[in-house]
């Protein structure tokens, strides 16, 4: 369990209505600095609304989101997102894509160069820095996106089912890569997924959501040692536990 200090992220009574339709119902939780939190819920549980409220794309109807004790302000706080769609800019090379986030944040040139080099190296794309996204495979694209997000050294990284469409080996591989990057950088990560196994594989803590109107059903600590084994009895036990909380099919 992560040590209780001032939480990095505090979500307080987050509520969202569309007209009379209650979508998010009084959600409160904390995320500690450096924590890897997985959020998993049933299909159609308002995951997108939840995420968009976290990122302030939607103004919540009630409640607030605090980062280091202050209301989230995208101009001040450095939050990075990774979505399922590989949101690389097709007209930029790999290195320009990684630099993109840094330029927007106004990082000075030399420091940006250094960061680009460093993170291209970490994800193993140095060789491909002059390539265009069109010339890369799905997994390489996903790594470009990950390098771009980590290079800005975000205070909070939000990931929305980034590996949904990949085949299993690639997914394992990228998940392991993500864990090692997270361990190296100490970034706070919120990872949202529908895939229960993935949530159990990655998370230090798993937040299980209910169906609409979305609220928190249960928070489960996940102390399984890493690297985790998906076939180990403890893993299966935890996976079943989460499945039972969610299962609708």
């Amino acid at each position: 369990m992560v040590e209780k200090k001032q939480p990095k992220v505090q979500v307080r009574n987050l509520t969202k209505k569309f007209g009379d339709l209650l979508v998010l119902n009084d959600i409160s939780f904390d995320v500690q600095a450096g924590e890897f939190l997985c959020i998993v819920g049933p299909t159609g549980c308002g995951k997108t609304t939840f995420l968009n409220s976290l990122t302030k794309l939607y103004e919540p109807t009630a409640g607030e989101i605090l980062l280091d004790g202050e209301p989230v302000d995208l101009k001040k706080h450095n939050i990075a997102y990774i979505f399922q769609e590989y949101s690389t800019m097709p007209w930029l090379t790999v290195e320009e894509n990684v630099r993109f986030g840094l330029d927007i944040k106004g990082v000075e040139k030399q420091k940006a160069n250094k960061l680009v080099d460093e993170y291209l190296d970490i994800v193993g794309l140095t060789k491909y820095r002059k390539y265009y996204p069109d010339q890369l495979s799905a997994s390489m694209l996903q790594r470009v996106v990950i390098a771009r997000a980590f290079a800005t050294q975000p205070e909070l990284l939000l990931m929305d089912e980034p590996y949904g469409q990949l085949d299993i080996q690639l997914r394992y591989h990228l998940e392991d890569e993500l864990i090692s990057l997270w361990q190296r950088t100490g970034t706070t990560v919120i990872f949202i997924t529908h895939n229960i196994e993935e949530a159990v594989y990655l998370g230090q803590r798993i937040l299980v959501l209910t169906n609409k109107p979305t609220s928190i059903k249960q928070a489960i600590d996940n102390d399984l040692p890493r690297p985790r084994k998906i076939a180990s009895p403890d893993f299966v036990k935890l996976r079943n536990e989460v499945t039972d909380l969610i299962k609708w099919w």
């Binding site: 569309f18 007209g19 794309l57 939607y58 103004e59 109807t61």
Partner: peptide, 8 residues
């Protein structure tokens, strides 16, 4: 983006 929930 026009927010459909704007209280107007």
């Amino acid at each position: 983006m026009i927010d459909s929930t704007t209280n107007s």
